[in-house]
């Protein structure tokens, strides 16, 4: 079953600025009251990379990671489900999902993944 994307973004009640991750004060107007919001719809890819020198905790050859902007303007980092960066282009549409991104202490850690939309 498809899991809900467990990311919460925060819209400043004073000026409307959308934040992810959380800040105690708005990056623009310093307001302290936020409306919680969920990333909505598909996203478009802002930038990406393929990392071949992985940090401790990743037992694989490489990782492809990018930052994407959702239809409601939430921006977030995620792993990208492709075999090569040759399959990617900035600006392309990607579909988000909430899937295992790493294993820690024998347990799956869930996070954002993006997959290009044909």
């Amino acid at each position: 079953m498809k899991k809900e994307i467990a990311i919460t973004a925060y819209k400043c009640k004073q000026c409307g600025k959308i934040h992810y991750p959380y800040h105690d004060r708005c990056l623009v107007c310093k307001g302290r009251e936020f409306e919680k919001m969920k990333p909505e719809g598909d996203a478009h890819l802002l930038t990406y990379t393929a990392i071949f020198n992985l940090p401790w905790g990743f037992d694989q050859r490489f990782l492809i990671i990018g930052v994407a902007e959702f239809e409601n303007h939430v921006k977030a980092m995620g792993q990208i489900k492709v075999d090569s960066v040759d399959q990617l282009k900035t600006g392309m549409k990607v579909r988000p999902s909430w899937e295992p991104i790493r294993v820690q202490y024998g347990e799956n850690v869930y996070g954002l993944k993006f997959e290009p939309i044909e």
């Binding site: 992810y20 991750p21 990379t49 990392i51 020198n53 992985l54 940090p55 905790g57 990743f58 990782l63 990671i65 977030a76 980092m77 995620g78 792993q79 991104i101 790493r102 850690v109 996070g111 954002l112």
Partner: peptide
């Protein structure tokens, strides 16, 4: 928002 994904400084 970043570290769990395996991002590195070179990344």
């Amino acid at each position: 928002a970043e570290y769990p994904y395996g991002i590195t400084l070179p990344g």
